[in-house]
């Protein structure tokens, strides 16, 4: 499925946001439907057969997280949540409960479109490509080999695992929990400082300027994201 012409369901209680998103997304070729409450959103999702859902976490009738969980019971369509800046915990909970990504209000439409494209692409992906290229960086998953500007980068197994997880979900945010669970297993989900140490090492090997990372960026209080240039 191509992301152009995809069906978007917007669940937000604020009329102005709904109107703006409807206009902007329609202009970018999406087919849109809107819902102003959690219950209406759940109903619409069933009828509308949305390819992607934009869900505001602050809904008047029910908890946005609850809507998210109910949606996840039957649909695998990517869900992007809208949240406010200070609510890091809400974001993490949403991501750990099956949301694909988040956008912080206020957001630019460009940011939202980028997130949507990533989410749709990941949802559509069927077979893993063995070699992933991101500008100067190439990750050969079949050979566990990482090349930067044509030269091989020596990574420890843990560093490689972190990088692999990030590039497979390139463009998507991964929470600390998700990363820890994937690399060290379920018992290490609270040890966020492991990641600080290993990401630091990893960055040293692949980033020329550590204070201005090109590939792995930090989402404060939430997790990490492998940046893709579009």
């Amino acid at each position: 499925m191509h992301d152009k012409g995809a069906r978007v369901l917007i669940i937000d209680d604020e009329n102005q946001i709904r109107k703006m998103l409807k206009v902007a997304l329609s202009a970018h070729g999406y087919e849109t439907a809107v819902a102003s409450s959690g219950q209406e959103g759940l109903n619409q999702a069933a009828f509308f057969h949305a390819d992607i859902i934009i869900l505001d976490l602050g809904l008047p009738d029910m908890d946005g997280l609850e809507v998210l969980k109910q949606l996840r019971e039957w649909t695998e369509a990517p869900i992007i949540v809208l949240s406010v800046r200070e609510m890091e915990t809400d974001k993490i909970n949403a991501l750990d409960s099956g949301a694909d990504d988040y956008v912080t209000k206020p957001f630019s439409i460009g940011e939202l479109l980028a997130r949507m494209r990533v989410a749709l692409r990941h949802a559509a992906k069927t077979d893993d490509e063995p070699v992933l290229k991101f500008g100067e960086l190439t990750v050969d998953l079949s050979r566990r080999q990482v090349m930067l500007e044509g030269k091989e980068v020596k990574l420890t197994p843990t560093e490689y695992d972190i990088l692999k997880n990030l590039v497979i979900h390139a463009g998507k945010v991964l929470t600390h929990r998700q990363l820890l669970k994937a690399i060290w297993g379920v018992n290490y989900q609270e040890q966020a400082h492991y990641l600080r140490v290993y990401i630091g090492q990893l960055r040293k090997k692949i980033e020329p300027d550590l204070t201005r990372p090109r590939f792995i960026i930090t989402e404060p209080g939430v997790g990490y994201r492998f940046l893709i240039k579009e």
Binding site: A192, H193, R196, I199, G200, L210, T211, R212, P213, I217, T218, P220, G221
Partner: peptide, 17 residues
């Protein structure tokens, strides 16, 4: 305060961005 182990360098990265 939500105390956590932080890497100053990482904070700088986020700030500059």
């Amino acid at each position: 305060l939500k105390y956590d182990w932080c890497d100053i360098q990482e904070i700088m990265g986020v700030v500059l961005r």
